[in-house]
Structure formats: C-alpha cells, structure tokens
Design a protein around this nucleic acid. Sequence first.
DNA 1: TTGTAGGCGTTATCAC
DNA 2: GTGATAACGCCTACAA
Lengths: 344, 344
Amino acid sequence: MRIGNMPIRFGKPRITAADVARHAGVSQPTVSLVLSKHPHARVAKATRERILQAAQELGYRPNRLAQGLVHRRSFALGLLVPGFGNPVNANIVSGAERVAADEGYAVLLSEIDESNAARHVHTLIDRQVDGVIIAGIAADTLPQQELSRLNVVLINQPSPANRYSTVAGDSLAAGSLAAEHLLELEHERIAFIGPHTPLPAFRLRERGFVTRLRAAGVVPRSEYWQRADATVAGGQSAMRRLLELPEPPTAVFCVTDVIALGAHKAASKAGIRLGGDLSLLGCDDIEMNTLVSPELSSIRTPQRELGALAVRQLIQQLHREDAQPTTHILPVKLIKRGTTKRKP
Amino acid sequence: MRIGNMPIRFGKPRITAADVARHAGVSQPTVSLVLSKHPHARVAKATRERILQAAQELGYRPNRLAQGLVHRRSFALGLLVPGFGNPVNANIVSGAERVAADEGYAVLLSEIDESNAARHVHTLIDRQVDGVIIAGIAADTLPQQELSRLNVVLINQPSPANRYSTVAGDSLAAGSLAAEHLLELEHERIAFIGPHTPLPAFRLRERGFVTRLRAAGVVPRSEYWQRADATVAGGQSAMRRLLELPEPPTAVFCVTDVIALGAHKAASKAGIRLGGDLSLLGCDDIEMNTLVSPELSSIRTPQRELGALAVRQLIQQLHREDAQPTTHILPVKLIKRGTTKRKP
DNA sequence: TTGTAGGCGTTATCAC
DNA sequence: GTGATAACGCCTACAA
C-alpha cells in the first residue's frame, strides 16, 4: 500500500510537550515527568505548577501514537466479530466499548468472516493492539500463528487447548433449562433447530438440551432434529419442514432467537397458534422477542455483560506477565412468555 | 492516567526494518525504501530481491504506530454513534467498517451520548485519527472547538454552517413519500409520531410529511401529532394515546421503524387490525419489519450505503488540501407491506 | 530537583 | 543506486 506524500487536511500544528516546556521555561522531559509519570514524581512544586498551567493554557494532550511507540503498546484493543447486524453481537460490542473507554482503551472494530479474518488480525497486530477479543466466530478458524502473538479473550467459546481466557454465558445450562421448561409443560414430541455453524456455544446449548431430555427419558427423534442457517430465513424453512412431518412436534427449541423468530413467522403463516398448538422457545432473549405476537419465550444470556467482562479480563491480563488463562461462566435465565404453554 | 512500568504480556520481539536490513546486508532506510515507497523506487534489482526475501522470511510488517508518528496521521478513522443497539446504527457502522478495512483504515468505535461525547472526541484526537464520522447524534451537541480540528463527515444531517461534508438519505423525500402513500390510500385522518430528539434527519422527515399533506389540502390536527421516545416503549404509549382519541386516526406515520414497531404492538394489543382498521407506516425499513404480523410497511433508507459512502468521502477529503464540504443525498424507497391498506 | 543523551520504528533528505 | 543523518513526539536513565 502506498503511503506518504499525501496531503492531509488540518495539519494544525499539534501542541507538543516541547511547546509546553518552552512555555514553562523547563526542559521537555520535565514536562513529561510531571504529566505522565507516577502520581507524585519528585519535582519542585513551583515548576510543577508552572508546567501544569502551561499545559492547560496551551491545551496540551500527549500524542498516544508516540507514547505507544515508546511503550510498545497502544492502549487499543481489537474486537473481532462476524457482523453486528446480529443484535447479540451488537450488545457484546456495546458492553465492551463502554468498559474499554472507561479504562482509557480504544476499540478497533473488525467485522470478519472466514475469508478476511487473517487480514484483519494482521492489521490489528500492525497497530500494536494490546489484545483482542473474539466473539461469534470460532477461534480455531482464525490464523493460529498470529493469534498466538496476541493477548486473547474469547467470548462464548471454550479455548482450544485451553490457551486463551474465556468469558461465556452458561450454554450447557441454557440448553438444560430449555429442555426442563418444555418437559415441565409436559411435552414429549420435542424438536430442535440448530445452526449449521459449528460455533462452540451453539453445540453446548444443544448438548445441554439433549442431555436433559435423555435424563427425562425423552429420546430425540432424528426427524425432529433440524439444521438451518442462523438467520430468520433459515428458521423459517426449518420450521416448515417440521410442520410437514406426519407427526409434527408439539414443542420446538431453537438455539438462537433469530432462528426462533423465523420459526415463529413460519408457524404463524401456517396458521399454527403458538403457545396453543405449538410451543416455541428461543435462546439469547433479544429485544425483538417482545415485538412478535405472541411474545417469544427465551433463555436470556448476558451480552453486554460478556463484552464488559471480556475487556476487564483482557486488561487484567496485560498487567501480569504470568497470567494464566481463566474461564468465567455467567448464568443464564429462563424468560417465560407467550410462546411456551402446556401441551395441548 | 498512569502509564509505563506495566508489564505487557507477549512482548515477543517484533521484527523491525532494522532486522530485515541486517538480514539482507543493507541499511535500514533502504529497507524502508523498498517496502513502503512508490512502486518503483530506484534501487538495484538484486538488492530489492534480497530485501523482499528477507522481509518475507522474517515475516516483517511495518509498525503502523511508527509510520503514524512520522506521517502525522494514523490511518484510522473515528466513528461516533449513539448506541448500536439501534439496528440502523449497526448497519451504518457495518457499512463503514467494511470500506474502511478495504482501504487500509482502522475504525475506532465510540459509543457516545451527550455526556461523554467530549471525552471521546478528545480520545480520538489524541490518537491522531485522520477523520471522524458522526452518525445518529446532532453535530452541534458536540464540542465545536475540537471538532473543527478534525476531518468530519456527517451522516444523516446537514452540516451546521455548512462546515462539514454530509451524506444522508433523502429525509424530505422520505416524509413526502410517506404522505403520498397514505393519501393514495385515501386516508384523511392522518397521524404522526415523531421522537423528542431534535435529530435533523427526523425533523426533515416530518417536514416532508407535513408539506406533502398540506399540498393535498390535509391539515395536520394537533391531537394527531405525537412525540415519543425513539424506542419501542415510546411508540407504544404514543399509539395508545392516539387510540384513545374520540376520533382516532385511520393512518399513522412513524418517523422511525423502532417507534412504528412499538405502535404496531400497541395497536395489536388493543385489538386493532392493522392494515384493516388502521394503516401504519414506518421509516428506515429495518429487518424486523418482516417479523411482525402483518409486516410493517416502511420507507427504506440506505444504511450500509451511508456508512460506506461516508468513509469514501472522508478518505477522499484527506487527499485534497483544498477539499470543500460536499453533500451527498441518497434516494429512499417506499416498501409496501401489510400494515398499509386503503381506508376502511 | 532538573537537564542532557538516547532510543522507540519509521520515513525523508541529503550526501556519497 | 545507496547509506548516513535527522526528524516525528514521547519516555527512561543517568548525569549534573
């Protein structure tokens, strides 16, 4: 890529530490000492005052790039997500950004898919990010070599080989809660719609679901086990397939709300009374669950909290040379609404 | 803020240009010349080959921070948005990020509200962003002085004093189209729900709407003109107020889909048949419009496109010292769905 | 207590 | 063609 020799507008002369020094009649390092060193560096009160005032007057702000160069770190974090069209990801990003900003870190956003992930990771390394957070995409689909040079915190997925720290909603419990709820409502013909994507969190939800069903003596029927794209359209067609079965299920658990909303739509279109003829349960509890009618029952997973916690964990890791990978599991919660009712 | 003296994990020795130089038996600046200078800098083919190979072998990647320091720019753009829980903003961000990445720019994400805007803007300046894009928040609520030191592109709002470039959906046309559609369906008792927030785009939508109504001889009734929070809940309560009127409207235009979805919900709850008893029209055309039943008619505004265009415009501005503020208006489009039907 | 020297990794300007 | 040398803005170490 060609750089240099390009004019840049607003090359307003930046105020530098040297300017402040001149203004205050001291040397530049002294300015640096007062402004960025440990709270009470030993420097004469008088000079300190003078420097602080000069800085104030000139509106001096240290150049983070220059600081980064010296410190070999940038006070910036990379955030790798596959599209925040998905509200779950949007919430994670939002939670992460907030904490990062509070802690003085910038957030570099990278919307990735399998095809461009390597490029994005490289970009982040080039910018000396202090660490990256990975959400919504399996870490092992990313270039391992570059990843190993970074501080990494994963969201919603166990770390391959336990190398990275993880924060996650309790996916096993989510699946388990889902099964329990449907069993409690006395359903037996219970179906499942999961996405093709082999995202660990989704697999765990499925596992928790199946395990709990089996424990109750309900054996999953293969024709009730549907795969779909993790989209509304995917949920729709999967639900249509279920409804066309000679003996359709009386309850369906979808591994994400987006899928569930698609299923919701397909069922409504087919004239099925949700909550009456058929119970439908999603997972994540996104906002629009309350916009459809009847409102979609769901398992609420923490999202902003995950983003926030991931950033905190990442920042903490930066401070300890010997930090070991940690795992944080946050609880999930069943939210009963209109789509899940006792078996007809 | 205290910096320095903090251990940072993975201080893996970065490969520098000096390393490559040593490896290739040339001086460091020569490496720089070959790797980052105009396509065909004059340097002996043999040396060039050697350098390229050395760089390849060592996996050298130039340090963007150092480049930024000398270029006085960072190849990073700031993105200021008020919450991407709002899918409209999420789409804008997504479109912007994509183009930025393609052009080699990083995106620094800042989720702002009026209270923390100044801090975020400062942060961006400290990081020497080459420019910022502002979406979903009125530019004149931000600190003007700092803003004036930046390259700015606004999304969906005309520039105060015409100082900044703007890209926007055609809000006037959106309002006008909305009015036209409802008039065509022979409605006369036409209501409006707009947000409290004085966001320019919203005011323009309203103006376009009113103007077109007036042109058709329909005089807006004050009791039909509701203000609401720009949320689902806001839309709900506004719609309830409308329904309680002695003579309720037969058609309602909401200035955003989020509000409209709230209105949709309130109407459905009240037993109103949307599209039958009452026509409802939103604006933006977010994805979940097709999830409710009947599906919500809307005016589609470009969102990813706005984000993408904003970045392109911003980057272009960086290249011309004498760039004048420009204005791009993108067309909008009526999407007819189930909630708008001929007057009963 | 403060100033001087040196370097972080890069690019630009010159001599050679 | 190529290699010193000097920035960019800041911080650390050491000397005064």
